[in-house]
Simulated assay, not measured.
Amino acid sequence: MLEQNTIDALAQELRYARENRKQVSHFSKRYPEMTIEDGYEIQRAWVRLELAAGRTIKGRKIGLTSRAMQQASQITEPDFAPLMDDMFFKQGDIAINQFIKPRVEVELAFVLKQSLKGPNTTLEDVLAATDYVVPAIEIIDARIEQFDSVTQAPRKVFDTISDFAANAGIVMGDVQIKPDAVDLRWIGALLLKNNVVEETGLAAGVLNHPAVGVAWLANKIAPYGEQLNAGDVVLAGSFTRPTTAEVGDEFVVDYGSLGIISFRFV
């Protein structure tokens, strides 16, 4: 376990990196003894800095929910991070200079009407506690270098967890779906960048049902005395690969009968 002063210093690095849009080197390279729990401790320290600066937590995101991404990261379970209030963006133009190297993923967001507290939360509990599900786009970013500037080695999952699980933004659609109105597993979407289909996917790619990840999260945070609260927005995990973005790129996610989400980086 890293020393608390080290954890606090690394959290400060991340906050500075986000504010100044300048990436930092891999924590796991500097501290080879670093563990997943260290990653979450750094993340929590960064959250405390954001709260002290006046930010609020509006929900959570779950990442690494697909089998392929878990294998690539050499882990056996998802990761998670908070959704801060300044990470919510409306459709339309979004200033790209708020990010460093943004990428885009397709997800479903669960908006809760009741709290969920582990350790025994089930998929059925999640559906009962959900007010509605809404199509969404997650904007991910890397305050820690994705590839080491010297060795080109990819960052480790410990780095990603520290870095808010790569979370940077969310854009929500307009169509609200009651959780029992459709089979959520079969919700599909097309991700277009500049009128070209880059990715397609089904929500079943998220642990075979997107609500499974929400149940996992409620159970995972329970030992820390935390829970998912009524009103929280929970991003359940991507069912497409991340798509790179540059200034001028226009993204459209077509959910068929569930509507379209669109925005442009300016």
Score class of each variant (00 low, 15 high):
V104D: 09
D141V: 02
S149I: 11
D148W: 15
I261L: 10
Q152W: 15
I7A: 01
G173Q: 03
A222W: 07
R48L: 13
T6L: 10
R15L: 12
V104L: 01
I139T: 11
A245W: 09
V266E: 04
L51P: 03
T121V: 14
L116R: 08
E124M: 13
I170Q: 07
A81M: 06
Q98L: 15
S115R: 06
S149V: 14
Q74Y: 02
H209D: 09
A166N: 14
V197E: 02
E246M: 04
V206L: 01
T121F: 00
N120V: 09
I137Y: 12
T243K: 07
A211F: 01
F27L: 15
I62S: 08
V111I: 01
A68Q: 14
M87A: 08
D141A: 04
D8S: 15
Q146L: 11
L64M: 04
I187A: 06
Y31C: 02
R103H: 11
K29T: 15
L116Y: 04
N167R: 08
V126D: 15
M69C: 02
A236C: 01
K113T: 05
E19G: 14
V47P: 06
E138Y: 11
A189Q: 07
D180F: 07
T130E: 14
R21T: 11
I100Y: 03
T76P: 00
P242K: 10
A168D: 04
D232A: 07
T240P: 01
R155F: 14
R264C: 11
N5F: 06
K220Q: 06
A81P: 00
G248N: 14
I100A: 05
V233I: 15
P154E: 09
N208I: 11
R18V: 03
S262Q: 12
F158M: 07
F80L: 05
G213W: 11
E124I: 13
I261K: 04
F158L: 00
L112N: 13
E246A: 05
A215E: 04
L108D: 11
Q23Y: 04
R264T: 14
L64H: 01
D93L: 12
Q12M: 08
V252D: 03
E145C: 13
